[in-house]
Design a protein around this nucleic acid. Sequence first.
DNA 1: GAAAAATACTTACCTAGGTAACTATTTGGA
DNA 2: TCCAAATAGTTACCTAGGTAAGTATTTTTC
Lengths: 133, 133
Amino acid sequence: MLNQDLLHLMNQRVRYISKNLNESLQQHGLYNSQWSILYYLYKHGTKTQKEIMNYFHVNAPTITRTVKRMEENGWIIRVAGDDRRERYIELTREAREKYKEIENTVSKHEEKILFNLSEQEKEILFELLQKIE
Amino acid sequence: MLNQDLLHLMNQRVRYISKNLNESLQQHGLYNSQWSILYYLYKHGTKTQKEIMNYFHVNAPTITRTVKRMEENGWIIRVAGDDRRERYIELTREAREKYKEIENTVSKHEEKILFNLSEQEKEILFELLQKIE
DNA sequence: GAAAAATACTTACCTAGGTAACTATTTGGA
DNA sequence: TCCAAATAGTTACCTAGGTAAGTATTTTTC
């Protein structure tokens, strides 16, 4: 087993998954990364950009950009914190209302993507991925 | 096991790996995707953009762009084919000469990334990833 | 209490993926 | 044979990741 081949395959799969997820999300006017943030905020409540950043292990400018687009499209609002360097990112009422329907679309997509894996295989895959570093 | 969590982890790992690989490749003046193409051409010989595209399951504009950058930096040249719609992508002598050294860097990186996985675990991971679709 | 360091976020610019619409060339069918 | 369809690649524009350098604010340190 060549390391090269393994990583190549992993890359392809991730690209394939995110491409298809984007297609599914198009009907809701959302993209991949925007959905991730929507999901995170819905589950965990209002967060600062720093907290979002840490959760996704992504750099600051990426969050700035994505959140900006989400604001322009009415998904979130940015609220200044007591510490005025911080910006709290809060879901709008509209985002909250649309959430369930979008989650449904995404669940179906994930179900389809992982259809060939048993519950046990998913757990093994999860553990193996955790070992990568 | 939530599908969501599994795909989230997979995304993070791929992002992490490619970020680190880019750092390793910086010393050679190369990026991730450019290295992939260099590798492919070194192993399989001169290919058309179509062939590269099919190999990586990536869209045409992506190859156009990456190959353009590689040409600007002296890694490849583009040669018109008999079918004048086609462009053959050929490694330059310089690219060929530098290849072994870069491969060495990349191998070390991959070794490090996958250090915690046994040979058997790598094979399982490979099989599980193949089942995704 | 003022200056230095740290922190949260932004801006500018890079690579890399995607789609849609275009050009140039080749192929195939009426 | 000639015109329509298919094919290879390009261009323009979108999201999304990265780094480096900048701004504004808070914290720390002397």
